[in-house]
Each structure stands twice: as structure tokens, then as C-alpha cells.
């Protein structure tokens, strides 16, 4: 089963939930898809042994064959190419690796070369994976795609998703069996939860909610879930102790064994929902 953990925004406890689940389950694969800020390793402390560079194809123009017609610059919807004085100029950072320039070139002057935009790292068994986008690179999707290529079948797979509800999240949750939406009981939390719910509904994926930092006042979240037919899987209390432990890289499951069975129950509940 592939389980995506997401939230409309960051800081609600996505990594706490997904890393805790990974620890509570006997055998599983944990994949940190938040390639802008991968944090899972802090809690799971994997021994990273494998390292792959993530490369994207960018055009290279052979000046001997280029006739300066400018077709490539006109074909590029992202304006990553300009043709000035019969010479093509490439702006590799904004290239979307679509190959349109190559298709448009009448003289076959464009071929593709690899460009590194980040890395994927893994432990020896490939049960822990994360990706890291190089600073200043705007396009994270190729790294998420590379991570998902390494999903193992037959194991529970936990995907710790990027925050938000944009393209990179769509990429991360595509093909998953279930989405756990993590939220907190504030107007911010509810607003962002609504966005996350709309996204998983649009992608026709089943989902349930975990309320983090629950105080005595989560009616607004519960009412919303009830109205929308979404199950609430778990509530974790708002406590200074949990926050302090988190700041030291200690998860609730590590501080208090009672959380292990709670999370295993969450997983079983998800399994039951997926079977339905």
C-alpha cells in the first residue's frame, strides 16, 4: 500500500506523522518527497549509502549546424532560449526539459545534454529515500519523479509530501492508495485542510485526517470532516513536552511506546478503508 502524508501547508506535523508511522511499522519504505526541505532523516537517522545525481536533459546547440533561424526560441514556451545574431543562447535554469526546441530545429543542430539539479540519497536497502534540490533551482518535479521510480512493491510505502497543493504535491501523491491529511485546529489549519481535501478529491484519492496539536477546541475541524465524509484517524494533543521533544529530534513514538500501537491502529484503519 502506498500512503501519502500531506498537508495544505508546512509545519503542521507531516514529517512527525510520516516518520512515526515508519517507526511504528515493522517493515516499510519511507520516502521524503519534500525535496526543498527534507527533514525525515533527522528523525529516522538512516545510514545513507547510495547517492544518485538527478539529471535533466537540456538542449545543446551545435553552432556549426545552427542556421540562426530562431525556430527553437519561438517553440520554447518557457523562453529558455533566445537567438541573437544567429547564435542561440540557453538559460538552463528555466528549461522544462520538454524537447520542443529539438523538434522545431530544421537542421538537427540541437541535441540534449545532462544537467544536474539535485540528488537522491538512500540507505543500503532502499527503505529510506530522500531527495535534495540544489539551491537556486526552481523545478523540483524531476527529483520527486526519480524518488518515485524507486518505490518498492509489496511493502507499505510512506511518502512524506512537500507542503502546499501545487504541482510537486500532485506529482508526489499520484498513484498513491490513500492520503493522510495532517492539520491543526486553528483557522489556518482548517483553511489549508480544505485546500488539501479539494486536491485529493480532484485526484479521486481516498483520504483521512490526523489532527495535531489538538486542544479542547477542534470542533471546526471535526465538523468540516463530518460534512465532507472524511474520517478522523487520530488526534495528538497540544503539549509543550511533544514540542520540546520534536525540537530535539525525538518523535512521540520514541518518547512513549503507547504511540506505537496508536499509529499501528491508524495504519490498520487506513488498510480497511482502502480495501473497501
Amino acid at each position: 500500500m502506498r500512503l501519502a502524508v500531506l498537508s495544505g501547508k508546512g509545519g503542521t506535523g507531516k514529517t512527525t506523522v510520516s516518520a512515526s508511522l515508519a517507526l511504528a511499522l515493522d517493515s516499510c519504505q519511507y520516502i521524503d518527497c519534500d525535496v526543498e526541505e527534507p527533514n525525515g532523516a533527522i528523525f529516522l537517522k538512516p545510514e545513507l549509502q547510495e547517492r544518485y545525481e538527478v539529471k535533466v536533459p537540456v538542449p545543446e546547440v551545435d553552432p556549426a549546424k545552427c542556421n540562426g533561424c530562431g525556430n527553437c526560441a519561438r517553440a520554447c514556451q518557457f523562453h529558455a532560449l533566445a537567438v541573437i545574431k544567429d547564435k542561440a543562447l540557453l538559460f538552463a535554469e528555466i528549461c522544462h526539459h520538454c524537447g520542443a526546441c529539438q523538434l522545431s530545429c530544421p537542421t538537427g543542430a540541437i541535441h540534449e545534454a545532462d544537467r544536474v539539479i539535485g540528488v537522491v540519497e538512500a540507505d543500503a536497502r532502499g527503505s529510506f529515500l530522500h531527495g535534495r534540490l540544489n539551491i537556486g533551482e526552481p523545478v523540483s518535479i524531476p527529483i520527486i519523479r526519480e524518488l518515485k521510480r524507486r518505490v518498492q512493491n509489496g511493502l507499505p510505502v510512506i511518502l512524506d509530501c512537500p507542503p502546499g497543493a501545487s504541482c510537486s504535491v500532485v506529482q508526489a501523491i499520484g498513484g498513491c492508495d490513500y492520503c493522510i491529511l495532517v492539520t491543526e485546529p486553528t483557522p489556518f489549519g482548517l483553511h489549508d485542510l480544505k485546500i488539501a481535501v479539494a486536491l485529493v478529491k480532484k485526484m479521486k484519492l481516498p483520504g483521512g485526517v490526523i489532527i495535531n496539536k489538538a486542544m479542547n477546541n477542534q470542533q471546526m475541524i471535526q465538523e468540516f470532516c463530518q460534512e465532507n465524509g472524511i474520517e478522523v484517524l487520530l488526534e495528538t494533543p497540544f503539549s509543550r513536552e511533544i514540542a520540546e521533544n520534536y525540537s530535539r529530534g525525538i518523535l512521540p513514538v520514541q518518547a512513549d511506546p503507547a504511540w506505537i500501537s496508536r499509529l499501528q491502529e491508524v495504519y490498520s484503519q487506513v488498510e480497511r478503508s482502502v480495501k473497501k
Binding site: 526543498e36 526541505e37 527533514n39 533527522i42 537556486g136 526552481p138 512537500p162 507542503p163 520534536y246 529530534g249
Partner: peptide, 24 residues
Amino acid sequence: GIGCVVIASITGASAVVAVAEPTK
């Protein structure tokens, strides 16, 4: 984050205030 939205949020600003929490 550090991606395109961040870059677009800070271009042309006189200063960036980064808000951090003391976590690992």
C-alpha cells in the same frame, strides 16, 4: 522553502526576515 515562489517573494525586497524555530 527555497524554490521559485520564495525567489519571487524576495526579489526587490530591502530585507529578508527568516523566521525559524529551534528544532533539529
